[in-house]
Amino acid sequence: MNKAFKVSLVMVLALVMILTGCGNNKNNAAKNEASSNKGNAGTQTEASKGENAAKPKIGLVTDVGGVNDKSFNQSAWEALEALKAENKVDDKYLQSTSNSDYIPNLNQFVQGGYDLTWSIGFDLGDATKQVAAANPNAKLAIIDNVVEAPNVESVTFAENEGSFLVGVVAGLTTKTNKVAFIGGADSPVIKRFEVGFKAGVAAANPKATVKITYAGGYDKPDVGKSLASQLYDDGADIIFPAAGQTGNGVFNEAISRNKAGGANKLWVIGVDKDQSLEFGNDVTLTSMMKRVDVAVKNVTQQIIDGTFKGGQVTNLTLKDDGVGLPEKNPNLSQEVLDKVEEFKQKIVSGEVTVPAE
């Protein structure tokens, strides 16, 4: 073997060894990087799981009025959305289009492992009781009805007391001495609105009359508009609808008539929320606030804190600020506001008892 060939062979062998070493280093680096990424991915996944586990899942089932009823369903959903914005819960709603939707909608949340399922509205009482009995480990809560079950918390309101106060407003404001009430469905809850309103009008203005009518549902704005048209034609200048989405039609009729002009200014009294925020102060005389949002937030907070007990009934009254007028009432004179406050204190003290049925 000549000398030149030996030198070339040595150089080739050295080059092979260098390339092999580089390849091994690259492979090892790739393996180490993959291992590192895998470990990081695992850590992130566990952290994400921890975050999700820390936030309870809350489900809400509406009655047929729907989640955008500008009334109590919407108020309940906004309370959950506020908690979600604070990163305290994950929430979802299911909208019922008929009574037959109640049980399937409730079951969807309960069987989906939600930490709390809300029933919004008196009409969901029987469905809630049935679902609670079939799922004793589930936690449920209901607005406007009492379900006697160890895993259900019930929240009701003294609607009659708050309605008495807006009745006082109507009695002192009417120019025609004719006011009206439109109910949604004829139920104990809506009856409390009706009789409280009538009592307040009578206490403030014995000369005023109150015409009572019912729309037959909470999802009938066209019916609400038609009924309002008849009542305004009959001389009423203030209408108090306690009818969910049906009441939106009352507002629309009053707005239309006020734009057209007339002998008397026409008013609507809002319900559940401060409805001047939706329809404006030009038509909203005041509103009978029903703090469904506070009730939903308080009970949901029990789930967050781990203090939910079930089997409890809470009735929110005028004394608890569970019902009443909005903080701002630009359409009411100081004289009217003073009279409202006078009656409020008499109700809270027990001097005045407001009928409930």
Rank of each mutant, 00 (worst) to 15 (best):
K220C: 05
G39P: 01
P188H: 02
E46M: 12
F343G: 07
A53K: 14
K220S: 10
F164C: 03
P330Q: 14
S36G: 05
W267S: 12
E159I: 13
D123N: 07
G200M: 00
P241Y: 11
R257C: 11
S276I: 04
T307N: 11
T314W: 02
S256W: 12
A185I: 06
E253G: 12
E335V: 10
T353V: 14
G162I: 04
A260H: 08
S333R: 09
T128Y: 00
G224D: 02
L165M: 11
E327Q: 12
K211G: 03
N68I: 02
T128V: 03
V7C: 04
G42S: 15
G66C: 10
S98C: 07
S276K: 01
N37T: 10
T20N: 13
K38A: 07
V223G: 06
G59K: 02
E161G: 06
N258C: 06
A34R: 15
G50P: 05
L277G: 07
G184F: 07
F122L: 13
D69W: 04
A82Y: 06
E342S: 09
V323L: 07
I58L: 03
E148F: 04
G244R: 02
I120L: 06
K92V: 08
L316S: 06
A141Q: 08
K6V: 12
M11Q: 11
V223N: 05
Q245D: 10
S96C: 10
V201S: 03
P241E: 08
D219C: 09
A127I: 06
E46N: 06
V313M: 08
S229R: 13
S276H: 01
L15K: 01
L266M: 14
T174P: 15
A134H: 00
I239A: 02
Q230F: 02
S35G: 12
F308H: 03
I143H: 09
N160H: 12
D144S: 05
M289T: 03
G310H: 02
A47D: 10
Q230N: 08
A202F: 03
F240Y: 15
D282R: 07
R192V: 00
V250W: 11
L106S: 02
K259D: 13
I58K: 00
Y114A: 05
A141Y: 01
Y114G: 01
Y102V: 04
